[in-house]
């Protein structure tokens, strides 16, 4: 499968990545080459094969639903790009 500039733009939007116009052709070329490599899977009939999500086929372990971590808000906010009064600041969402 080969991807054109419009498709790259659509995927970049899904992935929330601002790709510069001048870089789109190179990404289209490389992504198409990767998908061509990936397409070698199509030569194999996998009907009835159970998909493998975990190498040891283990189930995800769950823990008891109780608080296990202490609050460290100030520590974590010390590395945030912008905070004020204990809140993370982002551009205005609602006009």
């Amino acid at each position: 499968m080969s991807l054109g500039p419009a498709e790259v733009g659509k995927i970049a939007h899904l992935a929330r990545l601002a790709i510069r116009d001048q870089d789109v052709p190179a990404y289209a070329h490389n992504l198409s080459a990767i998908l061509e490599l990936v397409a070698r899977m199509d030569a194999v009939d996998t009907a009835g094969v159970i998909p493998m999500a975990h190498p040891l086929d283990m189930a995800q372990r769950l823990r008891v639903d109780e608080v296990s971590e202490a609050n460290q808000r100030e520590r974590f906010q010390a590395i945030a790009p912008r905070v004020e009064a204990g809140l993370y600041l982002v551009p205005k969402v609602i006009e």
Partner: peptide, 9 residues
């Protein structure tokens, strides 16, 4: 960026 795009696709 390439791998994120391939994955998102």
């Amino acid at each position: 960026t390439r791998r994120i795009l391939v994955g998102a696709f």
